[in-house]
Amino acid sequence: MTEDRLIELIESWGADPSAFPEAERAAARALLAANPARFAAAMAEARALDEALARMPDVLPSAALTEALVASAPKPKRAGGGFRLPKFAPWAPASGAAALAAGLFMGLMVAPTASADSDTDDVQALLEEAIGYDPAALSEGIVE
């Protein structure tokens, strides 16, 4: 640590050696203690500025600014709100099949009975397969 370097430190970091760079702090303190008169003027000037700066009031945000900053932040994700995709309903395919079967059944009931027997048998079989019982039997009241 040279005298010139110590002057530089005082002029840069102020009169408090604890503000000096750590690597040079101990050597600077030792030199200051060894010859305080040599650095008294530099220390006094630096101290006056340090004290003037220390008297500067804090700059504090207003309540309005604080609220504006908070309001600009990300919002919490709401558990129940917003658009949601419909969930998969396991009964949906079954209801579709039931609707299909009901449509076929009604169509058969109101269709002209003069259609070909072979076609009627085919439709009958298809219906039985779709709804699980013979609709003709139901219409005759024999389904258990």
Binding site: T66, V70, A73, P74, P76, K77
Partner: peptide, 14 residues
């Protein structure tokens, strides 16, 4: 705060 926790947001602001 990234998840929108209001207390954490306010703490960072303060």
């Amino acid at each position: 705060a990234a998840a929108g926790d209001p207390a954490a947001v306010r703490a960072l602001v303060n």
